[in-house]
């Protein structure tokens, strides 16, 4: 199973980024093979619809679970359309987030927990 964590940098030791649409990297970990791949979030600079672009990318990377902090309504509708499980409340590094997920410590959400444009500064 492929799990996606939103992060500030590449790899397992990178710090997480709780803002889904505006994170710098998606770190995708394959729980079967143990492979770790990091992908730049090209939606980072989008002036609007960043969450849509980000969710589209995560869906096309084949993730089945997304570990992050907050997801807006547009992104959430994509994630649920594709059937990606969304968990929130990550802290620390990507490795920490994965451990918390395995231990069942991350809250599952079935509706958006941020408003559109929440990640814009």
């Amino acid at each position: 199973m492929k799990i996606c964590v939103t992060a500030k940098d590449k790899g397992m030791d990178s710090g997480i980024d709780p803002r889904f649409g505006r994170c710098a990297y998606f770190v995708i970990v394959d729980s079967e093979s143990g492979s770790v791949n990091s992908f730049e979030n090209t939606a980072l600079d989008a002036s609007g619809g960043a969450g849509i672009r980000a969710a589209e990318a995560v869906a096309n990377l084949g993730a089945e679970a997304l570990l992050t902090g907050s997801v807006g309504p547009n992104a959430f509708s994509i994630l649920s359309e594709v059937g990606i499980e969304v968990r929130i409340g990550i802290k620390g590094t990507v490795a920490d987030a994965l451990n918390a997920y395995r231990e069942g410590k991350l809250e599952a959400i079935d509706s958006p927990n941020a408003s559109a444009h929440a990640g814009m500064k």
Partner: peptide, 13 residues
């Protein structure tokens, strides 16, 4: 960004 190309189809916003 009003269109998302997903493995399951195109989603319109």
């Amino acid at each position: 960004n009003a269109l998302a190309a997903l493995p399951t189809g195109i989603m319109v916003f």
